[in-house]
């Protein structure tokens, strides 16, 4: 009897808005696939509010046009007036620069709230940097050439609360430009994947910031740079990768929790300075650093 019940298709009789909500919870590829189930399902996918395009698994030989055509067509046919989430990831072999830029532009015009872009080649439309509806942004370029995506000098993202950026060498090229244009920023994650040369002094002067994650993944220099934290509302601080910066805590009066997961510490005194700076916090969690501290008196 139970198998009989399972064979009856009940989902088709769900109200349209529930159905589109459910279809928003899966990669767009699957949502669009349902269009051929029956007449009932033909247009349901067009009302999804989340778009999740993953071109990284597309075969470069015959996926060159297929992925592009698919995304083009989906964005052209969709009837959504407000995009909740737009996620896009692909390799450069699959997609032309201009296509990706026009897709992001379309998402911005459809009042996107959350944008998540990961690719090798990335050219971002100017409209993205003045998007009024954006609350969450993640940008990552998997660069083989060490170059970064470009950021215009004027950025205005009035609603952006969460920013997650990966840059390759110099955060001043775009990360700090972006941060400067976000008056509501509450959560920032900045990852610098390869720091080749001395990269100056990073000053985080963000009064609204509550969470900060800083990661230096790979440092190809013995130069030390300075990181100044002027973040009176910061509650949570995470440091990862390589410790190669001298931290100067100018204002971290609200800091409660510090989490450290370091692979390597360039000089012992950096660690001492860091611990001195966060001595007032309630919770300090350290991972992977303990072995550096053997025979090393902190305090």
């Amino acid at each position: 009897m139970s198998s009989k019940i399972e064979n009856v298709d009940m989902f088709s009789s769900l109200p349209e808005e529930i159905l589109s909500h459910i279809l928003s919870l899966m990669p767009t590829k699957y949502a669009v696939r349902t269009s051929i189930l029956s007449k009932r399902w033909r247009y349901s996918w067009m009302f999804v509010t989340n778009f999740d395009f993953d071109g990284t698994r597309t075969n470069p030989f015959h996926g060159l046009d297929r992925f592009t055509k698919f995304v083009d067509r989906v964005l052209n046919d969709c009837k959504t007036s407000k995009i909740n989430l737009f996620r896009l990831q692909f390799y450069e072999t699959c997609v032309q620069k201009l296509s990706a830029s026009s897709w992001i532009d379309k998402a911005v015009r459809l009042n996107v709230c959350e944008l998540d872009i990961r690719s090798i080649q990335l050219e971002l439309p100017l409209s993205l940097f003045t998007c009024k509806t954006l609350t969450k942004l993640r940008l990552e370029r998997w660069a083989c050439d060490g170059k970064d995506w470009g950021c215009p000098s004027s950025v205005n993202l009035p609603c952006l609360k969460t920013l997650d950026v990966v840059v390759h060498s110099d955060p001043f090229v775009n990360a700090f430009k972006l941060i400067g244009g976000c008056p509501m920023l509450e959560s920032l994650s900045l990852e610098v994947t390869r720091r080749k040369k001395f990269a100056g002094c990073y000053i985080f002067n963000i009064p609204t910031l509550k969470r900060l994650k800083l990661t230096f993944a790979l440092v190809i220099t013995s130069d030390i740079n300075k990181v100044v934290l002027r973040v009176p509302n910061l509650e949570y601080l995470f440091l990862g990768g390589v410790l190669c910066s001298l931290f100067q805590m100018e204002d971290v009066s609200s800091l409660v929790e510090v989490s450290v997961s370091l692979r390597h510490i360039a000089y012992d005194y950096l660690w001492v300075e860091l611990l001195n700076g966060v001595s007032g916090v309630k919770s300090l969690l350290t991972q992977d650093v303990s072995f550096f501290l053997i025979g090393f008196n902190v305090g």
Binding site: F11, S35, I36, R66
Partner: peptide
């Protein structure tokens, strides 16, 4: 819905060419 059986997916592929227009 995502985890349809292979037969069902095959049927989808057959009918809807623009979604699954593959090289083959």
């Amino acid at each position: 819905i995502k985890g349809k059986t292979p037969e069902e997916e095959e049927e989808m592929r057959r009918v809807n060419a623009w979604v699954f227009s593959c090289f083959v």
